[in-house]
């Protein structure tokens, strides 16, 4: 069994545990009742989204310093997976918002900065596909860095603009312990899932490179 498969298995098991804990173990929250259970995966996905784009940011910096293709590939792959987690965040978010605030969207700082970040990195992927081979690595690394610097600025500006509807970070610490456990487990499970997807997707990229190299050799 390879390392990737091991992590895949672990994340699958943990996901099952997380679903069990969320639905049967965690107590029902009193204002939102059952709907509150969306929170566990919604917020964990949002965390993973920031993690994924953070990895893009770091590996872009590393690529510019060391110029190893490895770092560039990690940046690309992590961006792609971050965007998938973004889709989760931006579909479960409105469902929650619709029940809680009777609106499909609200301009809450974390949600807004995640959205801006998400849009930036979609631009990153579009740019990558449009650039010629010899330039795309360096250029997308530059964009991978600039895009992330925006986060704190967006966050703080939106925070003042529209003070938090979301439960802020301090109340999360005061959750009943069963809810905390459920939240921690789903967060861990999604992080592991991210790691698994990252490794799996990285391998795909390597196979693609190998394929292209052989094809090129054949043409000559």
């Amino acid at each position: 069994m390879t390392r990737t498969q091991l992590i895949g298995l672990l994340s699958a098991i943990l996901l099952f545990v997380a679903i069990y804990v969320v639905f049967s173990f965690a107590e029902i929250e009193m204002t939102m009742l059952e709907v509150q259970k969306i929170f566990y995966f919604h917020i964990s996905s949002a965390f993973t989204l920031f993690l994924a784009f953070g990895v893009t940011f770091i590996s872009s910096i590393l690529y510019l310093i060391k110029r190893r293709d490895k770092h560039d590939t990690i940046a690309l792959v992590s961006t792609e997976i971050g965007i998938v987690f973004g889709v989760v965040v931006f579909t479960t978010g409105p469902i929650w918002a619709r029940y809680a605030w009777n609106t499909w969207w609200n301009w809450e700082p974390r949600l807004t900065s995640a959205l801006i970040l998400w849009l930036t990195y979609i631009g990153y992927l579009i740019l990558r596909s449009a650039l010629a081979e010899e330039k795309k690595r360096v250029y997308s690394a530059v964009l991978g860095i600039i895009g992330f610097l925006n986060v704190p600025i967006v966050y703080f500006s939106v925070e003042l603009w529209q003070g938090g509807l979301h439960p802020d970070t301090s109340t999360k610490m005061n959750l009943p312990s069963t809810m905390q456990i459920a939240w921690l487990i789903s967060w861990l499970a999604l992080t592991l899932l991210y790691l698994f997807l990252l490794m799996f997707r990285y391998r795909t990229e390597q196979i693609k490179l190998e394929l292209e190299t052989i094809q090129h050799q054949q043409m000559n």
Partner: peptide, 24 residues
């Protein structure tokens, strides 16, 4: 009504991850 919200949210989560994993 609440369960409808909950079901649709988790169904979407399941759908997104499954589709992406199968695509990969």
């Amino acid at each position: 009504k609440r369960l409808k919200f909950l079901v649709s949210a988790y169904f979407i989560i399941w759908l997104i991850f499954s589709l992406y994993a199968l695509h990969l």
